[in-house]
Design a protein around this nucleic acid. Structure first.
Length: 414
DNA sequence: TGTCCACAGGAAATACGGGGGT
DNA sequence: ACCCCCGTATTTCCTGTGGACA
């Protein structure tokens, strides 16, 4: 009886999915799921619509001296996230490789992706791995050893070597050691003609560099502007064509997504994510992708961002967030001091059987939550009653509930 | 005007844990 | 098995401070 019922439901669902699908090929909505050749195919199409034409022209101008046997400068690529720095460079450098092969010029390029913050050690080790110079280490090996291994590996390669260092500013402390190695030491130790390509979000990035290294660094710059609505429309159309059923998209949807995205960030990845979310919602509700759905999707995406960030955060930070929420609930008003939060935190730690940090460390956690704008905090002075940091919870109730539930689940308190 | 609260936040010290060498 | 090295996490110690209050 029960199973009969269940069976009907599933069959119904299958029928629906086959009969009026919104999504044709889900994989093209999520970049991580594409295999390399598919990615390149998508890129090819994007660049065929003249998006990022300017930038590619500039890149060509910079690199073509290679074919006269010249040695171009290093190059810095600036642009916000999602403006296609990585994609454009990948596409361009692959092209360059092919052209080089046709003309019998030895070119190699390596892409060092520092999308998450790493210390100098990690960065060097990653680079060494990329060059197959050594295996991956957690720690316990000196920086010098890694440098030597890299140099040894490259000792008999005379051609061009292009190192594409993505998101350079992600190197935490000791940045100078890493940069000094790349800019000053490496070129002198190996026969290859080294061309460094730096990608970064911050224009002022080289300013924090050790002056001795900086003066050594000769480079050109290219700036990637955020995509405008027209570019985004091109990009979205390609995705729609590959991933969705044209009939299921109501007119104006693409334009709206492009407009929204270009208005507040110009980030292509986010635009595609918005498209994907809209499509998922449409499929769930068995309706077409219509304009109002886009707004809903945008809102959900926003909420997802917060809970996803917290989900992957360290345990202590999650505990701190939960404590703040509990403390706020206890006080009923939304303003609490660090002391209240710390009390709640102590209780929470006991409850969840998590090791409890000192007040000092807890203060840092609060600072971190503030940084990611889960909370807002500011110093207030109550005169002779001392100074305190006031914590204000400003996220929508709905989202707080979601986050709180998620954390409790994580600590198995449900 | 000076005092003094109650915490912030910097610096140094310490604990920790994974890894290599022997 | 033991010790040393290195990067990270946390603690300990300490100085600094805006403004109500006397």
């Amino acid at each position: 009886m029960e199973s009969e019922n269940m069976r009907r439901k599933i069959e119904d669902e299958i029928e629906h999915t086959i009969a009026s699908p919104v999504i044709k090929n889900k994989r093209f909505l999520e970049d991580e799921q594409l295999i390399k050749s598919e990615q390149l195919a998508v890129l090819e199409e994007i660049f065929n619509t003249n998006v990022r034409d300017m930038e590619i022209t500039k890149l060509s101008k910079h690199f073509t001296p290679i074919f006269r046997n010249d040695h171009p400068y290093h190059i810095a690529v600036w642009g916000k996230t999602g403006t296609g720095k990585t994609l454009t460079l990948t596409y361009f450098l692959n092209l360059l490789l092919r052209l080089g092969a046709e003309r019998n010029i030895q070119i190699r390029y390596k892409h060092l992706d520092l999308s998450t913050p790493v210390p100098c050690f990690r960065a060097l080790n990653d680079l060494a791995c990329l060059l197959n110079a050594m295996k991956r280490y957690q720690r316990g090996i000196s920086l010098d050893e890694m440098m030597l291994a890299i140099e040894a590996k490259l000792a008999d390669y005379p051609g061009y070597l292009i190192l594409f260092i993505d998101e350079v500013d992600n190197i935490r402390r000791d940045k100078d050691t890493f940069m000094a190695f790349l800019i000053r030491r490496l070129p002198q130790k190996i026969p290859a003609k080294l061309i460094l390509v730096f990608a970064s979000n911050h224009l002022d990035w080289p300013d924090h560099l050790d002056p001795r290294v900086k003066s050594f660094l000769k480079m050109n710059e290219i700036i990637f502007k955020p995509y405008d609505a027209v570019d985004l429309q091109h990009i979205l159309r390609i995705r729609v064509e590959k991933a969705l059923c044209q009939e299921a998209i109501e007119p104006g949807v693409i334009e709206k997504i492009a407009a929204l995205a270009s208005y507040d960030h110009g980030d292509a990845r986010k635009a595609v994510a918005l498209l994907a979310k809209s499509a998922y919602l449409a499929e769930q509700r068995r309706i077409k992708v219509k304009l109002s759905l886009v707004d809903e999707a945008a809102k959900e995406l926003d909420m997802d961002r917060y809970s996803a960030m917290l989900k992957s955060a360290p345990k202590q930070l999650q505990a701190a967030m939960a404590s703040v929420i509990e403390a706020a609930k206890l006080q009923n008003n939304k303003r609490i001091g660090t002391a209240d939060a710390y009390d709640a935190y102590r209780k929470f730690c006991k409850k969840a059987r998590v090791s409890q940090l000192s007040g000092r460390a807890f203060g840092d956690l609060i600072g971190e939550l503030d940084l990611y704008s889960f909370i807002r905090s500011r110093m207030i002075s109550r005169g002779r009653y001392g100074r305190a940091r006031e914590i204000i919870l400003e996220l929508p109730e709905e989202l707080l509930k979601k986050i709180y539930g998620m954390i409790l689940l994580k600590f198995q308190l449900r």
